[in-house]
């Protein structure tokens, strides 16, 4: 029982970090029906910004917030220069651009920070917060889950209570109609990209702040697979679905490793891909997403 609880807590912790990256994917997908394959790398770059700022003497949380702003600006620039010129319904060029970004950003980070693991400073107090049934819940776990919920809540508020949020929802529900009622579609989508990059950066920073992990340019490669799987599980256009999916994927991963000895640890990535495959095959809209209706 104690072991089970411990695994559940670990799963929830990892799942919250996946959920934040998944939310970033969902934000872009909602706006543009594009899956940004470079999302993980953008988030990794943002986390490295934070690390670099911290090494220059900026206080930790200040560094994370500045790097969130920086990566939001970078994403807005990327959207304007590399994404907007293409026809959003033609997927191949957009996939190619995001894969080019993936390769380029990864190489850039490798050039600047080298492929060595760096110790990321702890964002949350260390030590054990409390224990339930013999299982220890660290402050890191508590704060990670809480920050995922807080971020989701504030995104929800932003999208439902502000004018730009309204514009964003209008654009994601019907691009042409929102254009007709006078919404400036381009800047709205740009806002979506910037928001996604900021959330992704926070997610990556929290993920690598885990005391047992370190940051290196390849750290987000697998996280992106988990996050994409989480986003698909929740429905690619549902924010709270991304949280549920992230927690679900974290859960499955953590329990399988413990209770299915025939599935070795290295294969936890495969479970994410299988979940992705099963979800897209049987329920392409995920559990909370809206089913796409296509007119031919």
């Amino acid at each position: 029982m104690q072991l089970f609880l411990q695994r559940v807590i670990d799963g929830l912790t990892n799942g919250s970090a996946y959920a934040l990256v998944a939310v970033a994917l969902v934000l872009i997908f909602k706006a543009t029906t594009l899956i940004n394959f470079a999302q993980g790398e953008q988030a990794m770059l943002g986390a490295f910004f934070a690390l670099q700022l911290w090494m220059w003497g900026v206080p930790m949380w200040g560094a994370v917030i500045i790097s969130m702003i920086l990566s939001a600006l970078l994403a807005a620039l990327i959207e304007r220069t590399l994404i907007r010129p293409f026809d959003p319904s033609d997927h191949l060029p957009l996939v190619i651009v995001t894969l080019g970004l993936f390769l380029g950003i990864n190489a850039l980070a490798g050039l600047i920070w080298r492929f060595d693991p760096w110790r990321f400073p702890e964002l949350f107090p260390s030590g054990v917060a409390f224990s339930i049934g013999g299982a220890n819940v660290t402050w890191y776990a508590v704060c990670t889950v809480l920050s995922a919920i807080v971020i989701l809540g504030s995104l929800q508020l932003l999208l439902s209570r502000t004018k730009i949020g309204l514009a964003f929802r209008a654009v994601s529900s019907n691009l042409e109609s929102s254009q007709l009622v006078g919404i400036r579609v381009g800047p709205t989508l740009q806002f979506g990209w910037a928001l996604a990059a900021a959330v992704g950066t926070l997610g990556a920073s929290i993920y690598v702040a885990n005391p047992v992990l370190s940051i290196e340019p390849t750290v987000m490669l697998t996280v992106l697979v988990f996050a994409a799987s989480a986003a698909a599980l929740g429905g690619l256009d549902s924010l709270w679905g991304a949280l549920a999916g992230g927690l679900g994927i974290g859960f499955i991963q953590s329990l399988l490793v413990q209770y299915a000895p025939f599935i070795p640890t290295e294969l936890s990535l495969l479970t994410a891909v299988v979940v992705l495959l099963v979800v897209l095959f049987f329920r392409p809209a995920g559990f909370f997403g809206t089913a796409a209706v296509e007119r031919v």
């Binding site: 997927h91 996939v95 990535l269 891909v273 992705l276």
Partner: peptide
């Protein structure tokens, strides 16, 4: 699955499979 899954979803799944391969052969 590709008969049902189209476009970007397929790209997602196949890139995921590619990511899995090294850990598969290391089993």
């Amino acid at each position: 699955p590709a008969l049902r899954v189209k476009g970007l979803y397929l790209a997602l799944i196949t890139l995921g499979l590619a990511a899995v391969f090294p850990s598969l052969v290391k089993l």
